[in-house]
Design a protein around this nucleic acid. Structure first.
Length: 404
RNA sequence: GCGUCGGUGGCAGAGCGGUCAAUUGCAGCGGACUGUAAAUCCGCCGUCUUCAAGACUACGGGGGUUCGAAUCCCUCCCGGCGCA
């Protein structure tokens, strides 16, 4: 870590791996554990940066693949980097495009997503306007994938991913990895992790080659290994020996594997570096992951659910579009302090969604993001006070009773 | 009054002798969503039956023709338009 960064652990919770820390970046401090909203295309969908800030977000996460395709990382560099381009002066994290190796490749082909559930039905296919027919091609040098816009082919190498992310100029960025399907078998997971390790070395090397960006940007390596304990531990150990400033835990999971996979990895990673659980953000999963030593999260789920009408409440999620909320004049959640809950009723939101007014997704996203961020704030607080387990039990006893 | 076109499921609107309980869209009801191909996608949507299978009632009303009608004929009712 350069002189512009530091990571300090302030508190630890006895009987667990949970900790409270501060990650200092050139654009401010991240108090960990932290939930980072996703703004893939340099915007947290449906929200202005002012809203995102008022919600209490400490950082946002954008995506290399999407921004490279449009409007192009060169343009963003010319604009002075992502912070200035998107008018967000707090910390920014960028993902490497590694997730798209999975989501546009095996994920699409197998119809599975980040977290797969056994016996899952209702697999979506054909939900995009541009049909992508060209398969993602992975080889030692890098990955060729189709543009989500027009299907044209583009190749990312680890070096290219780093260069793009240098142009984007986020405070923290990830090494280019191969995110694997949860359905992949042991041999494939192993060779994919080996390749991810080699790519990790190439990312580090390219990052080091640019002195200025090396000073201003932190590079995190990404642990893979699927659901196999020995692979996860070995992947974590391998990356831990490299000079990363922090670690992402990647891959897709079976729902029930998340906590254990995190625990295996955390036990192998150095204590003094931040750990980011990539793409996880279900409230229930967050409690388990924090307990097992995770410092950072990002997830599309609060904004995607919010846009689609599923809203978090302390007694479980509700679908605001259901007929039962049409005339319900109470707020989405009595205990929530967000802008939406302070000013609007369920009936009003129900009306907005039904009439497809764009304010609906906005208010829903505000609420879900605030719900999650304030929950993580309270988790942090409870770790400092030593009351984490009590908080977890009381939260989940209400939240989980209605949630599957 | 005459002529003409039309009356189809909550709405709009296909169908014009069998493969029609009836295309499609909307509305309605429910579901899914975890490093965003996503303000998206999936399912249901005449009645009865727990599902399936099935049964029943159905294309303005009534009556016919036909093995068989939402589809053809007659008549009545209603609406649009034109002429008086």
């Amino acid at each position: 870590m350069s002189d512009l960064f530091s990571f300090n652990i302030k508190n630890r919770l006895a009987g667990s791996h949970a900790r409270v820390g501060e990650l200092l970046t050139p654009h401010g401090v991240l108090k960990t554990p932290v939930f980072i909203p996703v703004g893939t295309k340099a915007t947290v969908k449906a929200l202005t940066p002012e809203m995102v800030e008022e919600i209490g977000a400490q950082a946002v996460l954008a995506n290399t693949y999407h921004l490279y395709l449009e409007p192009g990382d060169e343009l963003i560099a010319k604009a002075g980097g992502l912070h200035s381009f998107m008018n967000w002066e707090k910390p920014i994290v960028t993902d490497s495009g590694g997730f798209q190796v999975f989501s546009l490749g095996a994920g699409l082909g197998e119809g599975v997503s980040k977290v797969s559930m056994k016996n899952k039905e209702n697999i979506d296919k054909g939900r995009c306007t541009t049909s992508i027919s060209t398969p993602v091609n992975i080889n030692e040098d890098g990955v060729t994938f189709p543009s989500f816009r027009d299907g044209s082919l583009h190749t990312f190498t680890p070096e290219r991913s780093v260069e793009i992310q240098q142009n984007l100029g986020a405070d923290i960025f990830f090494a280019f990895d191969e995110c694997t399907s949860p359905l992949a078998g042991y041999d494939y997971q192993k060779s994919a992790a080996e390749r991810t390790h080699r790519w990790a070395g190439r990312c580090l090397e390219r990052h080091r080659a640019d002195k200025e960006s090396f000073r201003k940007q932190l590079l995190f390596g990404v642990v893979q290994g699927g659901r196999f304990e020995d692979l996860r531990r070995w992947s974590a150990r391998t990356l831990a020996e490299m000079s990363f400033s922090g670690f992402g835990i990647g891959g897709s999971f079976e729902k029930e594997d998340i906590e254990t996979a995190v625990l295996w990895v955390v036990e192998e990673l150095p204590e003094d570096k931040p750990r980011h659980l990539l793409g996880i953000g279900d409230p229930k999963d967050i409690f388990g992951a924090v307990e097992n030593g995770i410092d950072m999260f990002d997830c599309v789920s609060p904004t995607r659910l919010g846009r689609n009408g599923t809203l978090y409440t302390h007694s479980g999620v509700i679908n605001i579009r259901n007929g039962s909320f049409r005339a319900d004049l109470s707020p989405v959640d009595e205990e929530c302090d967000c802008y939406t809950c302070r000013n609007y009723s369920r009936a009003y939101l129900s009306h907005l969604y039904r009439s497809k007014e764009m304010l609906g997704p906005t208010l829903g996203s505000i609420h879900n993001l605030r719900f999650l961020i304030s929950t993580v704030d309270r988790i942090r607080d409870s770790i400092e006070k030593g009351s984490f387990f009590e908080f977890k039990a009381s939260f989940l006893s209400k939240y989980d009773k209605k949630t599957k």
